[in-house]
Amino acid sequence: MRIKRSLQATALVAAAVILGLLTVQGTYALWSASAIAAPGTVTAASFDMALADVPSGRATNMTLADGKTSANLAMTPSATLVPGTSVYGGIVVTNNTNAGGSFNTVITAGLGTVTNVAGGSLSTYVIFYAKTATSSAECSTIAGYAPIGSAGLSSPAVGKGGSTVFCFQASLSSNAPSSVKGQAVNISLQLTARQLCGVPSGC
C-alpha cells in the first residue's frame, strides 16, 4: 500500500518549507494455491493499514472507504525551521487487517524528492532524512537519521495489530541565503505496504 503525506514548516528567519509527504495506495502480491476444504462459509478479509501523524495524532487509513482512493495525511513538524536547524515529524503505520492466520507486512518508504514551489531555489538548501523506530518519541532525537537509498527504507515485519514508525527530518542549511526567505519546497515520498505471507521467507 502506498501512502502520501505532508510536513509543513515555516521558516523563522530564512524560508518557509512545505514537506509534502506520502500518498497511500494498495500494492498486492498475487500467488496461487489449492486445497480441499469441507463445505462452509468463505469470508473476505481486508488489507487495512492505518496511519497516524506524529506529533499531531491525525489519523486515516492508507486507502479510503471506496477501497481504491489513496489517503492523504498532513504531517505537522514539531518546530519552526531556521537556517542550521531541523524539524521532525513521523508516521505510525499499524497493521489492522482482519485476516485469519499469519498476516505480517513490511512497509517501505521510497526515495523522497525535494522540489521548489513557484520557481524558487530553496530545494538546494533543504536536506531530507528518515529512519524507522519502535516509538514515536524517537522521531525527535537526531540519532539514526540517514538519506533514503534507492532501494527505499523498509520496516521490520509488522504483524496483525502491530505498528511501526517512520520518522522524518528536514534540515535547512546554515548557509541558506536571505534570498530564499518565504520560499517553499514540496517533499514527496511514497510508502508501500506489502504482505509477507505467501512469498519466500514470509510468515
Rank of each mutant, 00 (worst) to 15 (best):
S201E: 08
G57Q: 07
V24Y: 13
S154L: 00
P177T: 03
T97M: 01
D48L: 13
S78T: 15
G182V: 06
P55M: 04
Y28K: 10
N104I: 00
S136Q: 08
G26M: 12
I107E: 13
P83R: 09
V93R: 03
T69N: 12
M75A: 14
L153Y: 01
A71S: 15
V199S: 15
N175Q: 13
Y125Q: 03
R58P: 00
S155P: 04
K68Y: 13
A15N: 09
C167V: 10
I148R: 00
T85L: 05
L189K: 05
S86T: 09
L122F: 02
V17R: 00
Y125S: 04
Q190E: 12
G84S: 06
A11V: 09
S178H: 03
P200R: 13
D48N: 14
I91P: 07
V24D: 09
F166Y: 11
P177L: 02
S46G: 13
S78G: 14
S155M: 05
P156W: 00
L64V: 02
Q183E: 15
T27W: 02
A59W: 08
D48C: 05
G182I: 09
M75Q: 13
F128W: 07
Y125I: 04
I148Y: 00
A44K: 14
E138T: 14
S135R: 03
S140G: 12
Q195C: 09
I127P: 00
V13Y: 11
T85G: 08
I3F: 15
V54I: 14
V54K: 00
A184H: 10
V42Q: 13
G149M: 02
P147N: 11
A15D: 11
A52C: 04
T108H: 05
W31E: 04
V24I: 10
T113W: 00
S150G: 04
K131T: 09
G202H: 03
G101M: 04
T69M: 11
G110P: 03
